[in-house]
Design a protein around this nucleic acid. Structure first.
Lengths: 113, 113
DNA sequence: CGGTATCCCTCTAGATACTG
DNA sequence: CAGTATCTAGAGGGATACCG
């Protein structure tokens, strides 16, 4: 499938390539979350970046945003049906990334000995 | 396989996340290339970025750099055996990215009509 | 041929403060 | 609760020039 000059690998990197986007995606794969929940689940993210990344993912059609008109306001973010097509992609990336990290750690231990 | 707080998806994005890295990878999957060949194959890349990205990929063990001590100098870049483990990952990403681009184009055409 | 070195600019992300 | 606005720092990348 890699047969074009403009490789769409870049597309995936753009969609997933914000600092917190993989983490957000991973949390939403587990289950839908409120804004505040995501803030707690991803300790170091700022409100600004969380909001911005969620809006990016929403614009790509990956995340659904549901507003409940209550007081206090309640907003739920969830993986859309389309967003679920990203799960197998994320799994493959995750597997290679985990193996790669493991190998790099082993290299570090070798050089330390 | 997505079952940890620190999702290694980020690792893949870091490894492949330079502006020209997917393109470089794609060219090296096709066949080994000299520095100058890559410059021609990737029209808009600067020498600086090509060099830098190649060094990044080399450090990650994905690309092999072979220097032939001749005059004029000759350097060949090729995908390492380890680097080949990235091919299936790139294929999955490529497939999703292509489908995503296609869908976004269709949306644009709809709104234009 | 196959690079480095330097300068500059833009874009992302963080900190902080404020709001419906 | 769920954001937006503003300012700033730092990394990534481009242009240009030079080198073994």
């Amino acid at each position: 499938m890699i047969h074009q000059r403009e490789c769409p690998v870049e597309t995936v990197i753009q969609v997933l390539g914000g600092k917190w986007k993989p983490m957000i995606l991973w949390q939403l794969i587990a289950s839908k979350q409120r804004f505040n929940d995501l803030e707690k689940l991803i300790p170091d993210v700022s409100q600004k970046m969380l909001s911005q990344h969620l809006r990016d993912l929403e614009r790509e059609g990956i995340v659904d945003r549901t507003v409940y008109p209550s007081v206090p306001p309640k907003v739920e973010y969830s993986l859309s049906e389309y967003g679920k097509t990203l799960i197998p992609v994320a799994e493959v990336m995750c597997a290679w990334g985990a193996a790669h990290n493991k190998q790099k750690n082993e290299e570090k231990e070798e050089s330390a000995s």
